[in-house]
Design a protein around this nucleic acid. Structure first.
Lengths: 226, 226
DNA sequence: TTCCGACCTGTACAGTGTCCAGAATTTGGT
DNA sequence: ACCAAATTCTGGACACTGTACAGGTCGGAA
């Protein structure tokens, strides 16, 4: 179990320790609390020691995003007993709940190249499902990016207005809170005011699933007869 | 043309001056260059003077996002001589090109509540088009949020990997550059490797339009007969 | 055993958002 | 005409941030 045959003292930390500490800071305090010094203090080391493990803070953040993507369960995606559409919906819900459990993660994801191992694994599984659904290679790749942007973009918006450090609220209380905070002058924005109840529910799981299904409806005609 | 009847010396700046300076810093230097001190220096004032115009940096950023949204042309959206679908596509392209002209703006947008006057005006126009398309009130509101998240999420991803300070590249050179930087181990991610050409073009206008049309296809069945 | 490279620390630098006096200015009310 | 109140801006400061540099310490390879 020895390190590679390179000289020097053994590392006192594992990368996973650093990532775990980073996620911990992310949960309590949001993205603003995820500082080099904070992580260093959490793992009990001088701030600059982290630069032995990650060349820059951006590299650390990229590793954190991949770590979070790795926490999403991929089993449902590959389950061949369920229809492709159910699998995609299930996975999309898993991604959403995982990211909502870590508010502050969404802005990180949107600034990441998503080329880490977990991201690639998830993308590969996604392509597999879309292939089984009957899409050709090019359409499957385009569709996977479409799904990706939808999921991450939506979650980013949903999480943006969450106060960091507070526990994530359930749909109902969030919707009523949004509803109470929304005041739109009806004479200037009549349609907006008329749809205010739907708007208050924008951050709900219902809206998320509605959009996802419209998107899957749009993908359906691309399937070639099996 | 006097200010409101409140005491105190007249303000030496207009909010629009501050916003213009902020957008200028955003263009050259990206979001990182958009600092209070930078803006203050650009408008020739002490850093803390800005706090009389915006209570916090976040408030300034929100104002910047609304400013940028206001720069998108709304005329095509309201043009009743064109079919609703063309209008939406046209508007989506306008939003994209406007935001791509200001790299670094996308992360700001995703952290904004989008409740500024320009955002509301755009949302109102969007609801109008969807109404004309034959969607009922609730569906129109849900669809507008779906379109919004798609547009902003996609642009955010597209802009994320752009080096700040450099001029935006055209689709072709960006795709070839991405293609050159992409190296995926084919034995571990066979489908990903097979679709590498499509993946390289993820940030292109073609992929953007493709996704948008899938999305509009998904909305189409919701239209009730006129 | 010697040596070299990797690890970690202390220190430091430039920069960040924002708060706290205080000085200057303009208004409305008397 | 004067005063009080409210507002704008400045200088300075505080607690941070990411990260570069020099130096000490450790451990595997020659």
């Amino acid at each position: 179990m020895a390190q590679t045959g390179r000289p020097g003292p053994r590392r006192s930390l594992a990368e996973s320790d650093i990532l775990a500490a980073a996620v911990g800071l992310l949960d309590r305090g949001g993205a603003a609390a995820l500082s080099m010094r904070g992580v260093a203090a959490a793992v009990g080391v001088a701030p600059n020691a982290l630069y032995t493990y990650f060349r820059t803070k951006t590299a650390l953040l990229h590793a954190v995003t991949d770590e979070l993507l790795g926490r999403v369960d991929l089993d449902h995606l590959g389950d061949p007993t369920r229809p492709w559409r159910d699998r995609l919906v299930r996975y999309a819900l898993d991604v959403r709940s995982t990211l909502l459990a870590h508010p502050g993660s969404a802005p990180l994801l949107l600034n990441s190249p998503l080329d880490g191992p977990h991201a690639l694994t998830a993308g590969e599984a996604l392509l597999g499902v879309l292939d089984e659904a009957g899409l050709d290679r090019a359409d499957a790749a385009r569709a996977s990016y479409l799904l990706l942007t939808y999921v991450l973009g939506t979650v980013a918006f949903d999480v943006a207005e969450l106060e960091p450090g507070t526990d994530p609220l359930d749909d109902g209380t969030r919707t009523t809170a949004r509803r109470a905070a929304l005041t739109v002058p009806a004479e200037r924005y009549p349609r907006t005011a008329a749809g205010i109840d739907v708007i208050a529910a924008y951050t709900s799981t219902g809206q998320y699933l509605w959009g996802l299904h419209r998107l899957l409806d749009g993908l359906d005609p691309l399937r070639s007869a099996e």
